[in-house]
Structures are given as structure tokens and as C-alpha cells.
Amino acid sequence: MDNPNDDSAQYLISTVSKRSGVKSDLVRAWERRYQAVTPIRTAGGHRVYTAQDIARLMLLNEATRHGHSISQIARLSLEELRRLVKSEQTATVLTSAPISATGRRCLAEEYIEKCYSSVVAFDANTLEAHFEHAIVELGTDAFIEHLLTPLLTRIGERWRSGELRPVHEHMASSIIRSLAYILRNNNPVAANAPRMVVSTPIGQLHELGALLAAIIAELKGWQVTYLGANLPAEEIAAAVCFTNAVAVTLSISFNNDDLVIPREIRRLKKLLGARAALIVGGRAAADYKAVLDEAGVLDVQNYDHFRAILDGLAAGHSAQISDGLASVE
């Protein structure tokens, strides 16, 4: 790989992210996992990058958009990356129309079978490779909706029937978490974008549903603060205050057959008041419909419904900003 210190100018990661178009967390992930760039550290411990690093990241970003796996191209030289990107740009001009929605569904079904076979074989490396390729071929939204969700449902069903062990589900979930940096929106978020906090209520330890909700919201242009799993209502409400969020999204994956979830929903709704909307979804959300209706929660039915809710809240947020500007004038 090229020497990252060929030029003397040094840039902090915030500047590198803006100039290369690659989000800071993705820069760190490519650096940590694939040694795509090798920054040096200042006396104060800050990473600093060169103009050559920025050029590499721009080319890597473009190449991955064309379907190349970062693990296979991360160590290419600058010249090799330039040739690769140039060849892809030429090929794009000659390609036919993008894959149709029906084609995506068929492709997703093929990937489901391949991924499930890898889970059964407990082959983590092959499963991760299938996921990486599917994300590129399907796009993030279709990957989540048409591949990942049905796959996780199948794994859960086979686990409960005894065909798979809990460790199979844990292995698949671990890989999905590790790939979150690929799934997340890599485009800059508008400064006035609506803000959201995403978590799971106390006692809900499975966070994949919440993580996927956070990714979908980011793709819709929201600025998301993802808190992970198992938080009490008071902490979630505190995060809303710290971030000025206009919405909270909770994922409920399991019915614990106790009074904790109803209590936490009521408590959080009271703490939020009119400050932020409360959105609840997940595999077990329907089991708590009575308390969700009672509290006036926005109950997510499916991914399209969640996106529609986000659009409605974003429109209301934009209207509030416009009204505020008009009053100032």
C-alpha cells in the first residue's frame, strides 16, 4: 500500500470525512479492519491523515458503490484504485437498466437460502461474505426488508423448533452488528434534520430490531442517536433532552410475560409529553397493543408504515422550522 506520509499536510478525521464523503465511523472501520489507510497520531493522541489518505478513501468509496468488497480492494495502490474506478465508470455507461423490484425480491430469496445454509454449517466467514455482497447488490433497504428480516425470522423459528441451537442465532446476530457500519447511511445529514433516539426498553436484550430501525431512519435523512438495548424510561427521556430529539423509536422483540413493558411505555410517554413522538415496533409489539393504544403510541405495522411515520414527523418538523424563521423575520 502507498506510504501515507508522502505529503506533509495533515487533516483531522472530521475534515477527511467531509472531503472524502466517507463517514468518520466508516473511516475508522476500514482502517481497523482492513488497513485501508494508516494515519499517524499527534502528541495529543489524535489521528491525522494526509491528502493521499483522502484520495484513497474517495476512490475506495466509489469502488464499493460499484459492488467491490472493501476487504478485497483496501490494500490496492492509488493507481490500481484509479484504474478500477475508471473501468467501473466506463462499464456503467454500457450497462442496462437497474434491477427491478421483482428482480430484487428474487435475488433476495436466493441470498436467503445461501445465508441460511451458512448459518446451518456455522460458517461465519461465508455468511459475512454473502451479507457484504447482498448489501451491494440489493441496496440497504431491500437487504433489510427482503433478506435480513425473513432470514432472522426463519432462524428464530428453527431455533424454537430445535433444528438450530441458540449459538447459531448469536453467530448470525454478531455478524450483522459488525456490518452495521456498511449499512448505515454514508451521506451527510442536513444540519436541520429531525433527530431521533433509538433503543429497547428495560428487559429487552435483543437489539437488532432497534439497530435496523436506526439505519432505516438514517436512510430517510434523520439524525439518529442509537443507544443500544435495555434502557429504563428515565435514561431514554434524558437522551431526548440532550439531543433535542423529536421522536423516540423502541423495538420490542420478546414478550416477557410481565408488567415491565407496560410500565415502561406509560412512564416514557409521560416523561416525553408533547416534546417527542413515541414510536414502537418489533416482533412482539403486537402483544402489547392494549397499552400502546392507551398511551397513544405510534405503533409500527411494517417497514413501509415506519417510513410513512418518519415522513409525516419530518414534514411536521420542517413546518415548525419554517414557522420559527417566519416569526423571526
Rank of each mutant, 00 (worst) to 15 (best):
D6K: 12
D7S: 11
S8Y: 00
Q10G: 03
Y11F: 14
L12R: 05
R19K: 14
S24D: 14
V27C: 11
A29F: 09
W30I: 05
R32Q: 15
I40H: 10
G45A: 05
G45R: 06
Q52A: 11
D53L: 05
A63H: 06
T64H: 01
H68R: 14
S69N: 15
I73Q: 09
E80N: 13
E88Y: 02
T90W: 00
T90M: 01
V93W: 02
L94F: 06
A97R: 14
R105H: 09
L107S: 06
F122Q: 07
T126E: 13
E128N: 10
A129N: 10
E137H: 10
L147A: 11
L148C: 12
L148Y: 09
E157T: 14
W159K: 15
R160L: 15
V167K: 04
A172D: 06
A172H: 02
I182V: 15
V197L: 02
I202P: 00
I202C: 06
G221L: 07
G221F: 08
A229S: 15
A247Q: 13
L250A: 07
S253G: 15
N255W: 14
E264P: 07
L271I: 04
A285T: 12
A285Q: 13
A290S: 10
A295F: 01
D304T: 13
A308L: 08
